[in-house]
Amino acid sequence: MTPNAIAENFNTTRQAVSKHLRILTECELVKQEPRGREVYFSLEINKMKEVDKWLEQFRQIWETRFNQLDDVLATLKKQQK
């Protein structure tokens, strides 16, 4: 997609989208491909999978903590009744 096409899907400016795309390109999470006067961006799926794999360790920790918080809140709610 072009930056304009991406910006149309969000409540933000094209300049903000371009800034994010520049950072994502530097991180090699998206690639840019010039086509005529337009530049198209696409995801680098394998890099995104690496990020997802890295985040998984934190996802498990937070899911455990949220489940523990649910248990505490349920206990407190029962005590109030």
Rank of each mutant, 00 (worst) to 15 (best):
E38N: 09
I61W: 08
K77T: 13
G36D: 01
W54R: 15
W62P: 00
D52N: 09
Q79N: 12
Q60A: 11
M48H: 04
N67K: 07
V51D: 05
L69D: 10
L29Q: 09
I6E: 04
K81H: 12
R14L: 01
L29V: 03
M1P: 01
N11C: 02
P3N: 15
E50L: 08
G36C: 00
R22D: 05
E28P: 00
A5D: 15
T2Q: 06
L43P: 05
T12L: 02
T25W: 02
T25I: 00
Y40G: 02
F10P: 04
L55S: 09
L21T: 01
A7S: 15
V72D: 05
D70E: 10
S18M: 05
A7N: 14
P3V: 15
G36I: 01
M1R: 09
L73Y: 11
S18E: 14
E38L: 07
S18P: 01
K31Q: 05
L55D: 06
N4K: 15
K77E: 13
V72F: 10
I6A: 11
N4L: 12
V30E: 11
I61R: 14
N4M: 12
L55C: 08
D52Y: 10
P34S: 08
T13W: 01
H20Y: 10
L55Q: 11
E56W: 07
F58S: 12
F10E: 02
L43G: 02
Q32M: 08
E8I: 04
T64K: 08
K77P: 00
L55G: 05
L76M: 13
D70K: 13
I45G: 02
T13V: 08
T75P: 00
H20A: 03
K19V: 01
Q60K: 15
K47A: 15
K31L: 02
C27I: 03
P3C: 13
I23Q: 13
Q15C: 00
V39Y: 09
A7H: 14
K53D: 11
I6P: 01
P34G: 01
T2E: 04
V72G: 03
A74R: 14
F41G: 10
T2S: 06
R65K: 14
K49S: 04
L55P: 02
K49A: 05
E50V: 06
F66Y: 15
L76E: 13
K53H: 14
E38V: 04
E56G: 01
K53V: 12
I23G: 02
R35Q: 14
R65N: 08
Q79G: 11
K78Y: 08
T64V: 01
L69Y: 14
L43N: 07
D71C: 06
Q80P: 00
G36K: 02
Q57H: 07
R37Q: 06
K77V: 05
V39W: 09
D71E: 12
D52L: 06
Q79P: 01
D71R: 14
I23M: 07
Q57A: 08
E56P: 00
R22A: 07
H20W: 10
E28T: 07
E26L: 03
K49V: 07
T2L: 03
L24F: 13
I6K: 11
L29M: 09
E63L: 10
K53A: 14
L21I: 10
E8F: 06
A7Y: 14
